[in-house]
């Protein structure tokens, strides 16, 4: 057997990216299992049903904290517009978008949470290929850009009201992968040991200037 298999997510076959553990004890990347949930509602490994309310409080577990600890200050990150602020793309999508952007492409496609997204660099928008009407603005900025969290994993520390915000956003957006997912304070602590995530989440409030002006 492939010894690396257990260290990799069975859905994307890569190192876990924000691993989330299901009640059946099987672990997948947060966005991978979310994509699975939107389609089949069962664990890809054992077919145990995924609880309907699992994503209201997913069990996010420790990642290896030694990833990319080097200086990130000169690095660019990509953000997409949410209902009341910006979300950072997950690290993997960010890497893909950035490399396509640097190659001078006018657009690129991403497979995120089981849906294909088009990222349009000319108009600085993203949309689902299956539903191009629902467009979201995107921006490219440093790590210090104000944002709500990563790819729908919201930071809730010191923000008791954000549960309500997140619930509303889920309702409004249906099954969009960019739904706000509120994680428990404990879960946030567990992922906080990734230094760059900590940096991403360290800014609570959006700045006064409108981020859209930078597009």
């Amino acid at each position: 057997m492939d010894t690396t298999q257990e260290l990799n997510c069975a859905v994307c076959m890569q190192k876990y990216n924000h691993p989330a553990k299901l009640p059946c004890e099987h672990t997948f990347c947060f966005l991978c299992v979310k994509g699975v949930f939107l389609r089949s509602h069962t664990c890809p490994m054992c077919r145990t049903p995924i609880p309907e309310d699992y994503f209201e409080n997913p069990v996010l577990i420790n990642e290896n904290s030694n990833t990319e600890n080097e200086d990130q200050d000169d690095k660019y990150w990509w953000y997409y517009e949410g209902k009341d602020g910006w979300w950072s793309y997950d690290e993997r999508s960010n890497e893909d978008i950035e490399s396509n952007f640097n190659e001078g492409k006018s657009e690129c496609k991403l497979l995120v949470a089981g849906a294909i997204y088009c990222v349009d660099f000319n108009n600085m928008i993203q949309y689902r290929q299956a539903d191009p009407r629902r467009k979201r603005k995107i921006i490219r900025d440093t790590l210090n850009h104000p944002c709500k969290g990563i790819a729908g994993i919201r930071k809730t520390l010191n923000k008791p009201d954000s549960n309500v915000d997140a619930a509303n956003e889920v309702t409004d957006n249906g099954d969009d992968t960019t739904n706000a997912i509120t994680v428990s304070t404990q879960s946030v602590h567990e992922i906080d040991n990734l230094s760059h995530i900590l940096r991403l989440m360290s800014i609570e409030e959006p700045s006064a200037s409108s981020p859209t002006e930078e597009i």
Binding site: M13, Q14, D96, C108, K109, L111, I116
Partner: peptide
């Protein structure tokens, strides 16, 4: 267009 997903490359 989309690059080939890493999973497909690995498989």
């Amino acid at each position: 267009m989309a690059a080939l997903p890493r999973r497909i490359i690995k498989e």
